[in-house]
Amino acid sequence: MHFSIGEWVSFQHTLGFILVKNVKERKCLVQFGLSSEVDMKWIPVELLSSREEVRLLEEDIGELQNLAIELEDAEWYKELEGRVMK
Rank of each mutant, 00 (worst) to 15 (best):
D73S: 06
H13M: 12
S35D: 09
D39M: 10
S35T: 07
Q65F: 03
C28M: 01
F11R: 00
E79M: 09
E75N: 09
I69G: 02
M40C: 11
E63Y: 12
L48Y: 02
V20Y: 15
Q31E: 03
L57Q: 12
M1L: 07
L29C: 05
L19F: 05
E75P: 01
A68D: 07
F11I: 11
L56M: 07
R51M: 12
A74H: 11
G6V: 04
Q31M: 04
E81S: 15
I43M: 03
E53C: 07
S36I: 04
Q12G: 00
L71C: 11
E63R: 15
N66W: 12
F3C: 06
S4K: 15
K78S: 13
S10L: 11
N22C: 05
H2N: 15
K21Q: 06
M1Q: 09
I69L: 13
L56K: 01
E25M: 10
K24C: 02
W76L: 08
E53Q: 13
E37F: 03
T14M: 13
V54K: 12
E72R: 15
E59V: 12
E37Q: 06
E58V: 10
L19S: 08
L56Q: 01
E59S: 14
Q12T: 05
E63C: 09
A74E: 15
I5Q: 04
E52S: 10
A68Q: 06
E72D: 12
K21I: 09
K21A: 01
K41E: 08
T14I: 13
S35M: 07
M85D: 10
V20H: 14
I43Q: 04
L56T: 02
H13T: 06
R26D: 09
F3E: 03
D73Y: 02
V84W: 02
A74T: 15
R51P: 00
E25H: 07
E46D: 15
E70Q: 15
E53V: 06
W76P: 01
M1H: 12
A74F: 10
V38F: 02
I43P: 02
K41D: 11
E59C: 11
I61A: 02
G33M: 03
W42E: 05
Y77V: 01
K78G: 00
A68S: 10
G82R: 15
I18Y: 05
W76G: 00
L29S: 01
